[in-house]
């Protein structure tokens, strides 16, 4: 089975969020970057488990500039076989998805996995766009994925319950919690990752469909109003009369 896992760089979850250039760019100064957690914990690890069960290869691909190479090495250390970097700054989801589609077309991947969303842009878009561009069926926010021959069984959580879906490969699936357990790379993995192939391909010249023109931070909360733990009637009264939420 040939599996492609799309990974993205994301700021560490504790990173300070601030902006530069007139609030038009995320301030990367002193920010640590990680593999987007959904891509690493769920998409990549599930791909590795499927490879362990069925044989095959796991390729990781990212649209990014050379600064993402360290996170690519991390994903290789966890166990991916090879990596491809499409050399461009990902300007919007469509731009990213189209670059990925141009790369993946004609490569006959049986399964393409992405994370549920990037924790910086929170779009949940790239997977669906990629599926449409490749004309493949698509399951969003999956929490379970099993493969038997050329058939896949997928579960995803909806507000009403868990939906069970079947489909024939090839498929695009975005991975959410439940899919797999996080793996910590070991020393052997880290050593091996240094010599695994990382191919850089040139990006196509494409225009984005959307642009972020300004970032802002939520207004900071006023000071917390403390309530006597013995006096919950007061809290209820404040929630009713002041906050008007009950």
């Amino acid at each position: 089975m040939k599996i492609l896992v799309c990974i993205s760089k994301a700021p560490d979850t504790t990173a300070k969020i601030s902006f530069t250039e007139n609030d038009t760019r995320f301030n990367e100064d002193k920010v640590q970057f990680i593999v987007n957690p959904y891509d690493e914990w769920y998409a990549l690890v599930r791909a590795l488990e499927l490879k362990e069960q069925h044989g095959g290869t796991v390729t990781i691909v990212t649209v990014g500039e050379p600064d993402v190479d360290p996170i690519i090495r991390k994903a290789l250390a966890i166990g991916a076989d090879e990596a491809v970097r499409i050399n461009a700054a990902p300007v919007d989801s469509y731009f990213t998805a189209k670059q990925l589609a141009i790369y993946a077309k004609d490569k006959n991947f049986d399964l393409i996995l992405t994370g549920k969303e990037t924790i910086n842009y929170n779009g949940s878009q790239v997977g669906g766009m990629l599926a449409e561009l490749l004309e493949l069926p698509y399951v969003s926010v999956a929490r379970k994925l099993d493969v038997n021959g050329t058939e896949a069984t997928i579960e995803r959580d909806l507000p009403a319950g868990t939906e069970v879906i079947e489909g024939s490969l090839p498929l695009v699936v975005t991975c959410a919690k439940g899919m797999a357990e996080q793996r910590i790379p070991n020393m052997r993995g880290i050593m091996a990752a240094r010599t695994k192939p990382l191919t850089v391909v040139e990006a196509a010249d494409l225009k984005p469909l959307t642009t972020i023109i300004k970032y802002s931070l939520p207004p900071s909360k006023g000071a917390v109003k403390l309530i006597d733990p013995e006096n919950m009637d007061e809290l209820v009264s404040l929630l009713h009369n002041e906050a008007k939420v009950i």
Partner: peptide, 20 residues
């Protein structure tokens, strides 16, 4: 979940910009 499945597909199909 359904919007996350459909909107990106339609965005790519129509080449229409999406804010999610």
């Amino acid at each position: 979940p359904t919007g996350k499945m459909l909107a990106p597909r339609i965005s790519a199909k129509l080449e229409a910009g999406l804010v999610a």
